[in-house]
Design a protein around this nucleic acid. Structure first.
Ligand code: MN
Ligand code: MN
Ligand code: MN
Ligand code: MN
Lengths: 213, 213
DNA sequence: TTCGGGCTTTCGGCCTGCCTAAATCTCGGC
DNA sequence: GCCGAGATTTAGGCAGGCCGAAAGCCCGAA
């Protein structure tokens, strides 16, 4: 099976699901994330499993094989490098890059990707703090905890903010919170910044932020 | 009908055919340029005509309507801006950009295209001297003559070199000939450069070069 | 004027990727 | 242990884009 944009999006979405939590993805969740009908997922799952990219027992969850993981890593790498490039060189804000990257991730050649990577100084993470896999799929993971799950008093650095909801990203930017921000958790939705100022976060936002442990 | 990559490639190819010569393109030539079967062209022609993008009488040639011309201009503009960007900023040589642009022309958003255009200082032509249409499809055409058709003694500036064959581009680059080069035609395949040196061009190359009249 | 080769179109088919509706399965709650 | 809600799969279809084979058209050469 050739690796079409659809295949790449399926692999990437399966990959992303287990990036910050261990449970494998189910067909219905995958369908919802991709915005397609569950029956469409069933079909593609057959093809991906047939190509040795995922494993799947009927009515069970989906897991990437090593080959599928490598393929997914390549897409994720392209997506995140593109996002980083758009923010650092093309005047985009971090809440504006996702849709553009969603398309370009399927269109860049290896050569152009390498040129962008070099220009950017081989960044290790994208504007949202998501790690950029190396060309061989490897990356250096750091133990992290959701801000919403952190105990009051927990102090840490923002590792990553889910880029799913642009509105959250804009709100956080307005609060000067981004990857690298140091903060202390006061209670479930309040944090103290280094200057001592306090920020009250929406529950959605608190669930989107991951801190060092 | 939505404007898919296939539609964009058809429009662009029809557009390009009449850019340097007046005869409209025929289905078989279009099929050859696109690398598809003639029957595939017949099908797409029906769709394009139905959408008001081209005119076509059965067994006749194909012509862009004003709407089709506008659509084609947009694709050509994206293609040529991408080529220019790859050469000026991403370390590509002028014979290496075509395939990459062939894909990216379908993937860039208007916003990203605008950002690239601004970065490059709104260039009027691409690395091969091909004019870059403005967003409204307009461009400033200059009378030109094929080097192969120029009379001995004709002196002019290189306006444009067809980018169809990368090998020709490499050869010409080795001879220090490119858009803007001043040269005098000696006989069909020989030219004199400003320094006085003489270059013997392959017939293919002489047919690919367009000079000021 | 006729004829035939070359274009063009028609026809039937294939593949990808998506859909809805209708089975079918699974698993937690009773 | 049974049952039903929810998840998953099956079945049948559709649209886009392509193909090869066969039929149809057109025009220049004779
Ligand atoms: Mn995508
Ligand atoms: Mn991101
Ligand atoms: Mn193209
Ligand atoms: Mn060009």
């Amino acid at each position: 099976m050739s690796t079409t944009p659809a295949v790449e999006d399926y692999l990437k979405t399966i990959y992303a699901h287990t990036e910050w939590q261990p449970e494998p993805i189910t067909p219905s969740v995958l369908a919802a994330r991709l915005g397609v009908a569950p029956s469409s997922v069933t079909e593609m799952v057959k093809k991906l499993a047939g190509a040795g990219l995922i494993t799947h027992v009927p009515y069970g969850p989906l897991r990437l094989t090593p080959a599928g993981f490598l393929g997914a890593s390549a897409v994720v790498r392209r997506h995140r490098l593109v996002e980083t490039w758009l923010v650092r060189e093309m005047g985009y804000d971090w809440d504006q890059v996702h849709d553009e990257a969603e398309i370009l991730e399927h269109a860049l050649s290896d050569r152009l990707l390498e040129a962008i990577d070099v220009r950017l100084g081989r960044p290790g993470s994208d504007p949202h703090g998501d790690l950029i896999p190396a060309a061989d799929g490897s990356l250096v993971r750091v133990p992290a905890i959701r801000l919403a799950d952190a105990a009051p008093g927990h102090a840490g650095t923002v590792l990553r903010i889910s880029d799913r909801d642009p509105a959250i990203l804009r709100d956080l930017a307005a609060d000067s919170i981004g990857p690298g921000s140091a903060l202390t958790v006061l209670e479930s939705c309040a944090v103290r910044l280094p200057g001592g100022s306090i920020r009250l976060l929406a529950p959605d936002a608190a669930a989107s932020i991951w801190l060092t442990k």
